[in-house]
């Protein structure tokens, strides 16, 4: 089996006391060229440790208005799982960072899950996130994915009972995706009050690193969340920056990414001193 670079990456970050940073991008949006350009920039300038690539879906239940909009535009312009795996395969050799595929279940089932997983694996994705697949039902999909060398990242949230949290963390690889708050993706002015406590519990019971996402929109929030987790995942806030960099360069994206990185680095330094 080929080596899973995401496992190595998350493990290395954790053992060296570093906070991970991941961005969510809607696949082949705003266009395939812009998307691959952005992947190259993120990788080349080390703006994030890995990237989640979202496959657009007609009924994105877990997504808030910003990602829904991107997803809707992508569907209208003909983006499919196939287009995304082709684009990723084309630039796989030009980037070093790991990629994770985020897809709703029906898209993976359509046309046969084995065929789709083969393409996903061939395009170099290390793991899958399936927001509408509960851990209890994940066995057959994650088993099939494993045969193609792909891990399955499962989700937990502050409302997850301790008992389920244990079960989920045992099955989730190579990290646990902790959904910071009730509801859908999207930027929020404030994170829930008890997040700190709930995240600490997740960190304690989880044998794998815990990454937290949904609603993180500023460097200060990233820092707040990173204090009680192994890393943060940012989607809607970054998507807004992509929208505001509609033509020309990706300066707003870069500036935003660097400001988050800087906060995380500061934290790591403080922890060391």
């Amino acid at each position: 089996m080929k080596k899973n670079i995401l496992r190595e990456k998350t493990r290395r970050l954790k053992s060296s006391g570093k906070k991970g940073l991941s961005f969510f991008l809607t696949g082949c949006w705003p266009s395939t060229e812009r998307f691959t350009e952005l992947l190259k920039i993120i990788d080349g300038e080390d703006l994030a440790d890995f990237v989640e690539v979202g496959v657009p879906f007609s009924d994105p239940l877990a997504d808030g208005p910003v990602i829904r909009r991107a997803s809707g535009e992508a569907i209208s312009s003909g983006v499919t799982l196939e287009k995304i795996t082709e684009a990723a395969a084309d630039i796989r050799n030009q980037i070093k960072m790991p990629l994770v595929l985020m897809s709703y279940l029906n898209v993976l089932l359509a046309g046969g899950i084995e065929k789709n997983l083969e393409a996903v694996s061939g395009a170099g994705f290390s793991a899958l996130i399936i927001p509408d697949l509960p851990a209890e039902e994940s066995g057959s999909v994650s088993g099939a994915a494993r045969r193609f060398g792909i891990d399955t990242v499962l989700l937990a949230s502050p409302s997850t009972s301790q008992e389920r949290l244990k079960m989920i963390t045992r099955r989730s690889r190579p990290f646990l995706y902790y959904v910071s708050s009730f509801g859908v993706t999207g930027t929020r002015p404030e994170l829930p009050e008890d997040l700190r406590e709930k995240l600490s519990l997740a960190l304690r019971v989880s044998p794998c690193p815990v990454y937290c996402g949904f609603g993180i929109s500023s460097p200060a929030q990233a820092r707040e969340v990173a204090a009680f987790s192994d890393g943060v995942i940012i989607g809607s806030a970054l998507t807004k920056k992509i929208i505001s960099s509609s033509s020309g360069c990706f300066n707003p994206v870069k500036k935003f990414a660097i400001s988050i990185r800087r906060q995380l680095r500061k934290m790591e330094d403080n922890a060391r001193n």
Partner: peptide, 20 residues
């Protein structure tokens, strides 16, 4: 065809690419 929407697996109308 058999697919997944709104949290259940059942017969469902969707295209080749999985969009409902």
């Amino acid at each position: 065809k058999v697919g997944v929407l709104h949290g259940s697996m059942s017969y469902l109308l969707y295209g080749e690419d999985g969009q409902i």
